[in-house]
Structures are given as C-alpha cells and as structure tokens.
Design a protein around this nucleic acid. Structure first.
Lengths: 112, 112
DNA sequence: CGCTATATATCGTCTTCTGATATATGTGGA
DNA sequence: TCCACATATATCAGAAGACGATATATAGCG
C-alpha cells in the first residue's frame, strides 16, 4: 500500500470527507509533506471503493459547490489497522539496524 | 518509497549483501510477509545504485556460484533514516485516529 | 537422474502516481 | 469591474515501479 493510499484511509477514518477535504487533511496529517494531486486522489478513491474499503457517504451543496463525501467501511478500518501494524514493524526493523550502525542518536524521534 | 525499496535498504544497512541474500533478509525482516521476486529485486537494486543509495561492494565465488555484493552509501543511510521518520509519523497519525474510533485496544502492538 | 536450493538476469504486463487539462463557483483585492 | 485564488469536481496520457514468467547454471540430496 502506497503512502498516498495510507494517508487517504487515515483521513477518511477520522471522519467522512469529500475529495478536496481529503487533500487538505492528508496535507495536515503529513505535516505538509504529501500534497495529493487530484489525479492521484480520484484514482485512490475509486480503488478504495472498488476494494470495499470506502463507500459514498452523502452529497452536499456547500456555498454553491457540490461536495461528494466518502466514508471508511469496516473492511477499510481493518485494512488500515493491519497496514499500520505492518509499517510499525518496518519502522522497528529499520530503527534497530540504524541504531546498530551508530546512526540515530535520538531514538525519541521515531517514538515521539 | 515502496515497502520493497525500504526493506532492501534496511537489509543493506545491516551489512553488505548479495542479491539472493537480500531476498532472504527481507523475508526475515518482514516476518515472512514480503517475498521479493527477482524481477522486483534487480529493478530496486538498479534504481538504488542509479540514485547513489547503494553501490557494488565485492564479488565472491561461494561454492562455485558467483555472489555480487552491494553496500549502502552514506546517502542511502540518510534516505533510510528520513524515510523511517516519515513512516513513524504516519504510524502515529493513523494510530491516533484508530484509537479515537475505539479500535486498537492494544496500543502495545504499535509501540512494541 | 531428477528435484530443490542457490544465484544470476531479462522481459512484458499491470497497477499506480503524476502532471496537464477542463469546467465552474465564491471571495477578496486592485 | 476584472483578475487571481481557493474551492470542487473529473479525465487522460505518460512514467515509474512491482510482479510473474522465463532463462541459465551449479551444488547437494535422495
């Protein structure tokens, strides 16, 4: 699972969001590192729906503009939890190796 | 950076390894989750070398078979450390959201 | 003699991310 | 009034990367 997909799942797990809201939330979640292009967003969103990890929630007209909301499904939540464990395991493995190399003096950084 | 690339970097950070050794180490590091196909491996390895994150180390004949070793460069170590911090931040973000959803009763799992 | 593990490498295909493009409305400044 | 910018949707072509299949070759074991 790509970082983009992971962050979109996390954004939706927070609460149902519309496309543009997901873009903003992902940017917040990643401290500005990940700015989703709309092409990426809709590709990810379509795939999440196709895989049963997200589904249409509702549509709203906000200030004259349509907002199409998506929500996380139970399967999506499970997938996110599993992927999170997986990433955490990878972080632990890499941290151990880096520490052994003398790198990584401030272990607090990975744990913070 | 894909999980495959991340684990190959981690395997090389451990110590210089040859292709087949990387495949085995990645499988160990990931608790059997990631079994690199050779097509993936050489693609990753070539890209790491092209990016200056890994370089040829030495060649050995071991039991009649050639072993081509690769080692991590300084830039590779930096990249691995940065990516590890990045992943750790994503894990923290997702963990917070999952906890808020009532999911994730055993926080020790992410932290272990 | 054949099977499995070790060890290298290439190739076509599929998935996925990116950048470009298109359309449209509300807001704020010049 | 007009322009730029943020908001909001959607599509498409191209590039990158992962995967499965395939090929070649030796050592060890039954």
């Amino acid at each position: 699972m790509s970082e983009q997909t992971f962050l979109v799942l996390t954004a939706l797990a927070d609460e149902p969001r519309h496309g543009y809201g997901v873009v903003q939330r992902v940017q917040e979640l990643s401290d500005g590192r990940v700015r989703l292009r709309v092409g990426t967003l809709y590709g990810v969103l379509d795939r999440l729906v196709a895989d049963g990890w997200a589904e249409p929630d509702r549509e709203e007209i906000h200030q004259g503009r349509l907002r199409r909301y998506y929500r996380l499904t139970g399967a999506g939540e499970t997938a996110l939890a599993e992927q999170t464990r997986r990433l955490a395991a990878n972080v632990d493995a890499a941290s151990a190796v880096l520490r052994a190399r003398g790198h990584w003096p401030r272990s607090a950084e990975v744990r913070a």
